[in-house]
Simulated scan of single mutants.
Amino acid sequence: MSKVISAHAVSVDGYITCRGPGAGRGLGHGTMLFDWYFDGDTPSQVFDGFRLSAPSARVFDALAGRVGAVVAGRNTYEDSDHFGGGSPHPTARLFVLSHRPAAEITERQALVTSGIEDAVAAAREAAGDKDVGLMGGGVVTEALKAGLVDEMVLHQVPVLLGGGRPFFQALPGHVRLRLVDAVPAPGVTHLHYKVER
């Protein structure tokens, strides 16, 4: 069975966007959370235009190569200008989780309004034997609450943003993680955790 994974760039103080994210403004003012996508000399084998450091490319491409479908929250979808009608991943289908209608959904995207369990189930079916990637703090929080997340990767960037969108929202209790890998790289440390149940 495919796994459900979350991989997010995150500041040391826990933000996944810079200040002022929103439609037309992307993920906020400044790009320091994402500089490591472009500050190396190793091209990604999955994402055109990404040039990472060698250690980051190994981690990033291994994760991206596993993803067959993506579930994103409505805020992430809006902040990212609807992903241009496509997906944040070059080959994975996008499922947008929202409680509101979205007339701008294209044939390469699907809107799920009935909750995280249904969104993950639809994404699993589309992913086949590949994994489901989660995007957005709200989606990850809801998936954690529902016990659906298998692995989490924090691409931790050594910056304190002091504002933006926090990664995690309120959880009903604690979630135990087990560190399985830590890869230091220029401008980022890749922390790979398994969610313990």
Rank of each mutant, 00 (worst) to 15 (best):
residue 171 L to N: 03
residue 65 G to A: 11
residue 16 I to A: 07
residue 196 E to G: 02
residue 83 F to N: 08
residue 33 L to C: 09
residue 119 A to K: 10
residue 30 G to Q: 08
residue 187 G to P: 06
residue 116 I to D: 03
residue 128 G to R: 02
residue 92 A to N: 08
residue 99 H to R: 15
residue 139 V to C: 13
residue 43 P to D: 00
residue 9 A to K: 02
residue 146 A to P: 01
residue 163 G to Y: 07
residue 102 A to S: 06
residue 136 G to F: 04
residue 72 A to S: 10
residue 93 R to W: 04
residue 114 S to E: 14
residue 195 V to K: 01
residue 158 P to N: 02
residue 118 D to L: 13
residue 124 R to I: 02
residue 112 V to T: 07
residue 23 A to L: 14
residue 191 L to Q: 07
residue 12 V to I: 15
residue 40 G to L: 05
residue 58 R to L: 11
residue 87 S to E: 04
residue 50 F to Y: 15
residue 21 P to K: 07
residue 163 G to K: 04
residue 42 T to N: 05
residue 16 I to D: 09
residue 187 G to M: 08
residue 153 V to P: 00
residue 63 L to W: 15
residue 69 A to Y: 06
residue 175 V to M: 02
residue 13 D to N: 13
residue 41 D to F: 06
residue 57 A to G: 06
residue 36 W to R: 04
residue 3 K to P: 02
residue 176 R to M: 13
residue 56 S to P: 10
residue 76 T to R: 08
residue 180 V to G: 06
residue 123 A to S: 09
residue 141 T to N: 09
residue 180 V to D: 14
residue 21 P to N: 09
residue 17 T to I: 11
residue 23 A to T: 09
residue 187 G to D: 05
residue 174 H to Y: 01
residue 95 F to W: 12
residue 148 L to E: 03
residue 36 W to D: 04
residue 58 R to H: 10
residue 188 V to I: 12
residue 37 Y to F: 15
residue 160 L to A: 13
residue 110 A to M: 07
residue 88 P to F: 06
residue 57 A to T: 06
residue 109 Q to Y: 04
residue 146 A to I: 05
residue 79 D to R: 06
residue 5 I to D: 01
residue 78 E to A: 09
residue 161 L to S: 07
residue 153 V to A: 03
residue 82 H to Q: 13
residue 120 V to R: 00
residue 197 R to D: 07
residue 45 Q to C: 00
residue 54 A to S: 14
residue 27 L to F: 15
residue 13 D to H: 14
residue 100 R to F: 11
residue 92 A to L: 11
residue 51 R to P: 02
residue 88 P to W: 06
residue 185 A to P: 13
residue 144 L to F: 10
residue 37 Y to A: 04
residue 76 T to D: 13
residue 70 V to T: 11
residue 31 T to I: 08
residue 122 A to L: 14
residue 101 P to F: 01
residue 103 A to I: 10
residue 79 D to P: 08
residue 149 V to G: 00
residue 91 T to K: 03
residue 59 V to R: 13
residue 125 E to T: 15
residue 50 F to V: 08
residue 68 G to W: 10
residue 105 I to E: 05
residue 113 T to A: 11
residue 132 V to T: 09
residue 96 V to R: 10
residue 116 I to F: 09
residue 34 F to H: 00
residue 177 L to F: 12
residue 191 L to M: 13
residue 185 A to F: 15
residue 183 V to A: 01
residue 152 M to R: 02
residue 132 V to M: 08
